[in-house]
Design a protein around this nucleic acid. Structure first.
Lengths: 111, 111
DNA sequence: GCAATAGTTAAGTAAATGCTTCAGTGTTTG
DNA sequence: CAAACACTGAAGCATTTACTTAACTATTGC
């Protein structure tokens, strides 16, 4: 479910915005309400709610409402999925470089 | 230089687009020319060049022109920077959960 | 019950994004 | 040298994005 390309798309899209990354950063230090998330941001509460909805749709953040306050937390599984996508590509490249290096070493003294 | 927030911004922005991620994916399997990058994509070569320029500006891809062909490769250091950003936030959250778990275990038999 | 609090929703708008086409620029190849 | 090749750049356009304001709905505290 987390590796389906549509979800991955939403995640990277969500992480593309500085305000949303700041929200994720704040949440990485612990849960927060919508107003707490909004506090350091130079925009209306309404804008923050819209960002938060994107973050939730992407799976990066989970929220639950108790009374009138919505408490938000990070969903580490989603973060891990994005991390994993990048990591696989990087490793694929680096393994390729390693093989190339091996080949060069092997052929070095075959002149 | 890679951890400066502006560069990180460009990187996540670059990774947000599916076509650009597909290009990164292709490049993770080895270098490619602009036309080779364009081949699987359902858009004009010109559009691909525009995506490529973003990828290069973000630091994720490095290119060099020899004759009339521009050869592109992944810059693993940049990928690592994006990876690192996500990883730190996830770990920060998970460490917090661990401490919380420890606390609950420690307090359990103090009834 | 009536404020104040915490958030939600809708509508509008300016700017950014992701394309397209078209008219180039250098570079090889026959 | 001429034609094909591999891009490149500018202009234009439709859509999406990131906001804003304003009106509204639930809670909670006095």
């Amino acid at each position: 479910m987390l590796h389906d390309p549509a979800q991955l798309d939403l995640m990277f899209q969500a992480l593309a915005d500085p305000a949303r990354r700041q929200m994720v950063d704040r949440l990485s230090r612990g849960p927060a309400s919508v107003s707490q998330l909004a506090e350091p941001l130079a925009m209306s509460l309404s804008a923050v709610v819209q960002h938060l909805n994107l973050l939730e749709a992407s799976g990066l953040v989970r929220t639950q409402k108790v009374g009138r306050v919505r408490t938000c937390q990070i969903e580490p599984k989603a973060l891990r999925a994005a991390e994993h996508w990048i990591n696989e590509r990087r490793l694929s490249w680096e393994r390729r470089l390693d093989r190339l290096g091996d080949f060069l070493v092997e052929t070095k003294d075959e002149t």
